[in-house]
Design a protein around this nucleic acid. Structure first.
Length: 480
RNA sequence: GGCGCUAUCGUCUAGGGGACUAGGACGGGGCCCUCUCAAGGCCCAAACACGGGUUCGAAUCCCGUUAGCGCUACCA
């Protein structure tokens, strides 16, 4: 039998990194085993579910390269089956009608809590006679259906945690069908997982305490249990549950920040799962080959943006410029930087190994497209100030020397030869020639080798910018 | 409060009774390379929560303690 797994998000918010990772683990498991991944949108909370959120979730999964084999199915479409299952349990005496109102329950709960006691449903409606139930129903009194939790051991061998055991007596009889005839989460999930032949339930470990209830429902419905695998939560840097306070938590945020989907997926996979050994950058086929539920960590993991950025940088460096073209173009568009008729690839090659995000890379590309848009940063200003008159003077020497190069000769190698010869002839340290050029062209004291920078920027723009920056206002008179 | 889950460097982790002087990666620090940075190379600081067992031997198995987290709804 092929494994059938599912990812079942509620469209009540954006695709959270925790949800994305749960989806990823399901996907990896399906691909590893040759199984099927079903996508089920749990939209039964009409109040909070929106179509926009559904679309965002679908987009996020697509962006990460997580492909589903079946669905999306919408849980809201299966209300009749949920109700039928609940009523079947009622008919078989495994559940009962409860006429307690929400108000009564709430006040009982409040009273219990005020007294420092745990609230337990007292099961009063479980003791109603058939006549009483018929009478109150006929009188139009609203009621829910409550599941009679059996007093027995509710245990399973969790694929990541091992044996987990609950006792039925510790659980309240819980509502499975609301007074408006819609199913409560645990009922809907079990009904759907059964109907969809789900064999492995891989989900967040905040569902561990729902599992005994669901197991009881499976038993009552006479169906075999799936394998449960509860994956740990993802925490913020402060060790608290990841939330808005931690900044970016939705996968869309990372897309915005210039993170590549492959890097995001690699990073997420290694958060709570390890292929064993010392592997960090794991290509897709390897990831699929090595993935096992047993390799999943039991402990919650802290989401470390610094490591994500490092990994993203690794992916950027390894990718050919060709594949970086699209994201960079998109970002340049956002920045309002035109690049018609320019070949971006050599520029991307020049900056990619020094960039950790697409955003960083696009900004550097923009400056190389048009150096006049650069402004000296703090270190750049410091260099200008420190060199004083020599800054402009050396730039003028450079302009003079490089001006002798023909447009055809404007290549990295001849440029380097020219600059070295200049330094030697004038008795200057190479750095005193190179650094002013670097600052003039990029505003920064950090870049690819200066000769490559000049080659990438091109002859006319380079010479124009160097002359501009050689003007007295940038040199001897100090910063403006 | 009850029930449950978890516990190795700051962070992600390797580790399944002896190969542990506890390994790798991110981040931090230093050196080399060098026109700067990145990369690369070399090096440094940094952890088995605590207490009891079991065993010839425990990071690893058991029990407690502590701490963190989750659930305890006519939410999902």
């Amino acid at each position: 039998m092929v494994p059938r797994v599912r990812f079942a998000p509620s469209p009540t918010g954006f695709l959270h990194v925790g949800g994305a990772r749960t989806a990823l683990f399901n996907w990896l498991y399906a691909r590893h085993t040759g199984g099927v991944l079903v996508l089920r949108i749990e939209d039964t909370d009409r109040e909070r579910s929106t179509e926009t959120h559904t679309q965002v979730i679908l987009d996020g999964l697509g962006w990460l390269g997580i492909s589903c084999d079946e669905g999306p199915f919408f849980q809201g479409a299966y209300g009749d089956r949920h109700r039928d299952d609940a009523e079947r349990l009622l008919k078989e005496g495994k559940a009962y009608r409860c006429f307690c109102t929400r108000e009564e329950l709430d006040s009982q709960r409040a009273r219990a809590e005020a007294g420092g006691q745990a609230f337990r449903y007292d099961g009063r409606c479980a003791r109603l006679t058939a006549d009483e139930v018929a009478g109150r129903t006929a009188a139009g009194e609203p009621s829910t259906i409550r599941f009679r939790v059996p007093d027995e051991e509710l245990a399973w061998d969790d694929a990541v945690h091992g044996r987990i055991t609950f006792q039925g007596r510790d659980l309240d009889d819980f509502v499975i069908l609301r007074s408006d005839d819609t199913a409560i989460y645990n009922m809907a999930v079990v009904s759907d997982d059964i109907a969809m032949d789900i064999t492995h339930v891989i989900r967040g470990d905040d569902h561990i305490s729902n599992t005994p209830k669901q197991i009881a429902l499976y038993r009552a419905l006479g169906r075999p249990l799936p394998v449960f695998a509860h994956v740990p939560m993802i925490l913020g840097t402060d060790g608290k549950k990841l939330s808005k306070r931690h900044g970016a938590t939705a996968v869309g945020d990372y897309q915005e920040q210039g993170i590549l989907p492959l890097a995001m997926r690699n990073f997420l996979a290694l958060l709570g799962w390890s292929p064993g050994g010392d592997r960090e950058i794991v290509p897709e086929d390897e990831m699929i080959r090595l993935f096992t539920l047993e390799g999943i960590q039991k402990k919650a993991a802290v989401f470390d943006p610094a490591k994500l950025e490092w990994m993203n940088g690794e992916y950027i460096s390894a990718l050919p410029a060709e594949e970086l073209l699209e994201p960079v173009r998109r970002r340049l568009g956002q920045l309002g930087v035109g690049h018609e008729g320019r070949d971006l690839r050599p520029i991307i090659d020049a900056v990619k190994s020094r960039s950790r995000t697409i955003l960083e890379m696009a900004e550097r590309v923009a400056v190389r497209l048009d150096p006049s848009r650069s402004t000296p940063d703090a270190k750049g200003e410091a260099l200008i100030k420190k060199m004083g008159a020599a800054f402009g003077a050396n730039l003028r020497l450079v302009v003079q020397a490089l001006g002798a190069l023909s447009p055809d000769g404007w290549q990295a190698e001849p440029i380097l030869g020219t600059l070295k010869a200049l330094a030697e002839a004038r008795g200057l340290k190479l750095g005193d020639v190179m650094q002013p050029v670097r600052v003039a062209l990029t505003g920064s004291t950090v870049s690819e080798p200066v000769n490559e920078l000049l080659a990438v920027v091109g002859r006319p723009r380079s010479l124009a910018r160097l002359e501009e920056m050689a003007a007295p206002s940038h040199g001897e008179s100090g910063a403006a």
